[in-house]
Amino acid sequence: MIGESFIPQSFHPQLAQVFARFEHPVRIVTHYDQSDLGKDLQKFSSELAALTDKIAISLKEAADIPGMELFFHDGRAAGIIYHALPNGQEFNSFIAALYNIAGPGKVIDVEAEKKAKTITSKKAIKIIVTLSCHNCPVVVQAMQRMASLNDNISVEIFDYAHFADLKDKYDLKGVPCCIINEEDERKFIYGKKEFSELLAELLDIK
């Protein structure tokens, strides 16, 4: 994709409507390297930031793997990192993530929102997706919404195309695949699940 534009001109009006609703600016820290993904993330985040003054970007050489890390306006990490170029099915997820941390965020059921805020132990979530998977955005959007509501929840999204070694590491049988607290419970959740179902799974971990 290097050389081409990631965000088509035809998307700009719809994106402008979303950015106009942002209550606060957001920051994307792009951890880049010389890999294809690292270069693409650098270009994508720059293109996006050029569309609005509500998004600021910082470029940082990746210490480990490339990714786009999202921050609230007050400098707090939102706990959301994309190790994936948000193309294909995940473009909308990424815009939703920005909207969620800029505020007011996507409206969800009031009771579910309250419950999501009650989680007091750390939930480190890895989600493995493919950009052609139509089931993945449902899970990504739900998990990152929870992360935007609760500092104890963090989400990292991995594009399988760039991290194929994860298939063997986790004996991956399909996507979306969520791995919760890899170092402790190591709970796996497969398949399309709605916000309430995923919240129940997280609440189930003591």
Binding site: M1, F6, I7, P8, F11, Q14, L15, P86, N87, G88, Q89, F91, N92, I95, I128, T130, L131, S132, C133, H134, N135, C136, Y160, A161, A164, K167, L172, K173, G174, V175, P176, C177, Y190, G191, K192
Partner: peptide
């Protein structure tokens, strides 16, 4: 679920909005 399958050289997906 969808299959976790991708081969080097597969066409890069365009975004959809």
């Amino acid at each position: 679920v969808c299959p976790a399958k991708w081969q080097p050289g597969d066409e890069t997906l365009k975004p959809s909005i």
